[in-house]
Amino acid sequence: MENDSSKKTILIVEDDEFLRSLTAKRLEKENYHIEVAVDGENAISVIETIHPNLILLDLLLPGKDGFEVLKKIRGTDATKAIPVIIFSNLGQKEDIEKAKALGVDDFLIKANFTLDDVVGKIKKLI
């Protein structure tokens, strides 16, 4: 993906290939620059190198899960101000509360939203 410096960069952290490509396709239509990460470790290294404008973070990921990634983002000075939206199919009260305690900006359950709704949520944050 070409990097246009005028575009805002969104990092999609998602292990499901199809969901990842659909999300990327929809967000590219909104003129965002899209980066992807397929697991927690991958996400952390991408975040440290590119400092995205917003992170769309899945919770159930191979290896390090989304909570650990979120903890790492909020615990690092250079990345702690980046808006993070949890985008997962987990959505029990405990998960939502845990994410809120770790400083998430929004928590969306994938099945309950369309990608248009997600675009709306992103536009509220950046």
Binding site: F18, L19, T23, K25, N89, A111, T114, L115
Partner: peptide
Amino acid sequence: TTHQLRTPLSAIKWTFHM
């Protein structure tokens, strides 16, 4: 189970919606 069901359903829903 619900999580596993919701993930493929999200894919179907988003595809239909797009």
